[in-house]
Write a protein that binds this DNA or RNA. Structure first.
Length: 838
RNA sequence: GCCGGGGUGGCGGAAUUGGUAGACGCACAGGACUUAAAAUCCUGGGCCUGGAAACGGGCGUAUGAGUUCGAUUCUCAUCCUCGGCACCA
């Protein structure tokens, strides 16, 4: 008997076996149902961290389970290999980003193997390979042709530390998502992907994703930010721009009667125009200049002091015909709606503050609909009343409810050509240009005569040049490669200049799941028939931090590629059916991070306790979507459990090695202890199966197996008890089988010690025996007035009406029923009896 | 401010969706084995309380109400907490 389990030798031996047998290599031909499981691929930073351990252990456990359940499981892996850290490392170590990246990939791939994670490595892809990004360049050109990619000068988010532009999604609380540097704004000409073209569809799709974490769909709904309202036209009444109509967007067209001024964004094209020639022109110009100098991020903070300046001009209220002044105001955003807002101080908090500050009229047009007895809100002269209500002081619309007026006023204006109902979104187009080297080159040549010209498709890929120096200074590193930059215009042949920006790395991760569907295909990004077979992803797993970044982009890209014809029309419109967002790994109350110095290195855990221990701990410590607080003692507990399972088999091997697992009927067992153990065994199968089928409750699945192990420890059997030994063997084999997805190495070894020649990883799952899970003796809870007073152990066959009679005889119950009047008896079959007394 | 989660022992967490609250694990305590320790195996435990013990009694799932024979679970209010968005007109 071998008391000590040698995790090091055992784990590497089985990893070798799995590799040699290519166990997780699958093809798109099978009579089994397909199951595409994918974890968000990692950035090859150098070594794996605990977040990876959690993410990929969950994926691996699911993949192993689903394969055992008879699915044709595709579980691929690759590398999100472009990005800034490679460039920074290049600057620091005087090496090339590619060299750094590929050596990291090699190391991390070994770590993946050491964790026992099984993938179909034939499908591996690194996004920094020209064979990968060339397709992205083609998609770019096709999107350009369809108007889904375009270039514009705009004010963009800029990170001074990363020296590059950031998408809106990459700015978190005014800071860079990567380096946490304060983000500033810059005016730059950039390439954009037109996500807004899909705004409505992406929003509607959120309702059709029942398999997604609701936190994510909620965040995406908010991010898309749909507002229904109206566009109203205010005509300029005086000055040089008399007659020009200024559109404003409002969600409250019912309040239009209360407009007492119009506010324009300082950047609005009309702001300076309207003031032209008036004696206040200089003041307005100074104000605009001042506001522009303040960073947009700071300016858009809610508590930023509201300021404005009158432009001298007036506009006509399209409903009342009233003449109201126009202001420039620092809180009006140029990039939402039309950059102009109708101000209704009586019913909007910001307008109210502004009107108070500048002494502008506050006209009430909405009166609260008060239920009797309700308190009157403060008068509008003191505070804005922002709730809906009934219209007052609104001419022919007086008396309508807000709800009716919101519909009727835009309709009425539409007939007069002064407005119409409309919808606005907060979602902005995705700025994809990055002023960095280590990314996909944007396949464009700028020509003085022809403008931006796409690189002809047959010339793709535009490969990243090698002769680039990494200094960390100045503009795009690519601009320093003369060979790269100076090329003839594909249209006119004159000397042009390549675009020296690269694409946001989120573009690569927007379609890698499609690439994985095919084995490497030199002439295509992927084969449509493979995508038709494997798509969509059945189970996607990754961190919630991507809720409004990657998870939004890849929903967009999936639709674009389907509309471009790359994805067959029959494939679902959503890329992933189910999404699990694993929680973060914490230590000492904070997310593990190098800067906080609270990182636990997975290698050290593998070394000391083995991969199975690491896997078991990370799955057992908390439900998948919750934060895990790292606990060294918890890890030791998982380690102990593996040892306990090992000894359980070692200690019983002489009793079970020459018998088969019990294969008879449950009813044929007459030994009470054996019967009990077998019931527990099959209940455990049922419980674990159920936990894995519903939301992957790994933690409770593992605790159920622990219970079974405890039960086996207390089961005693004699050598001459053949049936008892068979039941014991069945139980022990069950533990090994059920534990395999979580702790595959030790269970593979135990399977071999049980005398099997097969790989446990390739063995089928077991179904529970429906007869065995039924208890023939059940415990009924007996309550008096809802208080637990006794337990009644009876045969499951006792008829309902006899149960109460039996329960009432229990001495404890008798004591509580004494001298009381029995009002009612509640009997829940199989569960409880409750005597209600007075 | 708005939206969405969530408050259960010393800790991580269970509880078949209304039916024995605290499974399983950690930590702790006691015992066995050992010259000893480690490891291992066994036992114990929500809190208060009566009893030498066997065995009872009361209170308990953030707080307060409500529905119900019965509430961690449903309803309302309050407090706290985490996450997201945030001058979006």
């Amino acid at each position: 008997m071998n008391e000590i389990y040698d995790h090091k030798a055992t784990e590497s031996r089985w990893q070798d076996a799995w590799r040699k047998l290519h166990v997780f290599e699958v093809d798109a031909i099978s009579n089994k149902p397909k199951y595409y499981i994918l974890e968000m691929f990692p950035y090859p930073s150098g070594t794996i961290h605990m977040g990876h351990v959690r993410n990929y252990t969950m994926g691996d456990a699911m993949a192993r389970y689903k394969a055992a359940r008879g699915f044709n499981v595709m579980h691929p892996m690759g590398w999100d290999a472009f990005g800034l850290p490679a460039e920074n490392a290049a600057i620091k170590h005087k090496t090339h980003p590619a060299k750094w990246t590929y050596s990291n990939i090699a190391y991390m791939k070994r770590q993946f193997e050491r964790m026992g994670w099984l993938f179909d490595w034939r499908r591996e892809a690194a996004t920094c390979a020209p064979d990968y990004y060339r397709w992205e360049q083609l998609f770019f050109i096709q999107m350009l042709e369809k108007g889904l990619a375009y270039r514009k000068l705009s004010s963009v988010n800029w990170c001074n530390s990363c020296n590059t532009v950031l998408a809106n999604e990459q700015v978190e609380e005014g800071k860079c998502w990567r380096c946490e540097n304060d983000v500033t704004t810059k005016e730059l000409t950039q390439w954009f992907y037109k996500v807004t073209a899909y705004a409505e569809e992406l929003l509607a799709g959120c309702d059709k994703l029942p398999g997604w974490d609701e936190r994510v769909t909620t965040m995406q709904r908010h991010w898309i930010g749909k507002s229904e309202g109206a566009e109203l036209l205010f005509e300029v009444a005086d000055g040089p721009k008399k007659g020009v109509k200024i559109p404003v967007f409002t969600t409250r067209p019912d309040t239009v009667g209360g407009v007492s001024f119009l506010s324009l964004a300082p950047e609005h094209a009309l702001t300076l125009e309207l003031a032209r020639g008036a004696n206040i022109e200089a003041r307005v110009a100074a104000f605009v200049d001042k506001v522009r100098k303040i960073d947009k991020i700071k300016r858009s903070a809610e508590n930023f002091e509201k300021e404005g300046v009158a432009l001298g001009a007036h506009v006509l209220n399209p409903v009342t015909g009233e003449k109201v002044p126009v202001f420039a105001a620092n809180f009006v955003l140029m990039d939402y709606g039309s950059g102009a807002v109708m101000a209704v101080p009586a019913h909007d908090v910001r307008d109210h503050a502004f009107a108070k500050k500048y002494g502008l009229p506050i006209k009430q047009v909405i009166a609260p609909l008060l239920e009797s007895g309700a308190e009157l809100p403060r008068p509008v002269s003191e505070a804005a009343y922002t709730e809906p209500g009934r219209l007052v002081n609104s001419g022919e619309f007086t008396g309508l409810t807000s709800e009716d007026a919101k519909r009727k006023i835009p309709q009425w204006l539409e007939k007069k050509g002064a407005g119409h109902p409309t919808v606005n979104y907060k979602l902005r187009d995705w700025g994809i240009s990055r002023q960095r080297y280590w990314g996909t080159p944007i396949p464009i040549i700028h020509c003085e005569k022809c403008g931006p010209v796409p690189v002809p498709k047959h010339e793709l890929p535009v490969v990243l040049p090698e002769d680039v120096e990494f200094t960390g200074e100045g503009a795009s590193p690519l601009s320093k490669s003369a060979v790269f930059v100076n090329v003839p215009c594909p249209k006119c042949g004159a000397l042009g200049r390549r675009d020296t920006d690269t694409m946001d790395t989120f573009v690569e991760s927007s379609w890698y799941y499609l690439r994985f569907c095919s084995l490497p295909t030199p002439d295509k990004p992927f084969r449509p028939e493979d995508v038709a077979y494997w798509g969509p992803i059945d189970q996607y797993i990754g961190g919630i931090e991507h809720a409004t970044m990657h998870l939004l982009y890849f929903r967009f890209f999936h639709r674009v590629l389907q509309d471009l014809g790359w994805i067959p029309a029959g494939v679902a419109r959503e890329p992933a059916t189910n999404l699990l967002n694993q929680g973060i790994v914490y230590k000492d109350g904070a997310k593990m991070s190098k800067s906080k110095g609270n990182v636990v290195d997975p290698d050290s855990i593998i070394e000391r306790f083995g991969a199975d221990t690491a896997r078991l701990f990370i799955l057992f410590a908390a439900p998948p979507e919750k934060v895990i607080e790292w606990s060294d003692q918890g890890v030791e507990g998982s380690y102990r459990f593996i040892g306990r399972v090992w000894r359980m088999l070692q200690g019983n091997i002489s009793l079970i090695q020459d018998v088969k697992p019990y294969a008879g009927q449950q009813s044929a067992l007459n030994h009470a202890e054996a019967k009990k153990l077998r019931t527990k065994t099959h209940q455990t199968i049922q419980k674990v199966t159920n936990d894995l089928d519903h939301d992957f409750r790994f933690n409770t699945a593992i605790s159920a197996i622990m219970e079974l192990v405890n039960e086996i420890y207390s089961f005693k059997v004699e050598l001459n008890d053949q049936t008892g030994r068979e039941v014991l063997r069945e139980s022990i084999e069950t533990v090994v089988r059920l534990l395999c997805p979580f702790a595959p190495h030790v269970t593979e070894e135990l399977w071999r010690l049980l005398g099997h020649d097969s790989l446990l990883t390739l063995e089928k799952w077991r179904d529970h025996d429906a007869q065995a899970v039924l208890l023939d003796v059940i415990t009924i809870v007996v309550q008096v007035n809802g208080k637990h007073r006794a337990n009644l152990t009876i045969s499951k066959d006792v008829p309902k009406d006899e149960i109460a009679a039996m329960a009432s005889k229990d001495p404890h119950v008798v004591a509580h029923l004494k001298d009381k009047e029995l009002v009612r008896t509640v009997v829940v079959p199989g569960r409880l009896v409750n005597f209600v007394v007075k």
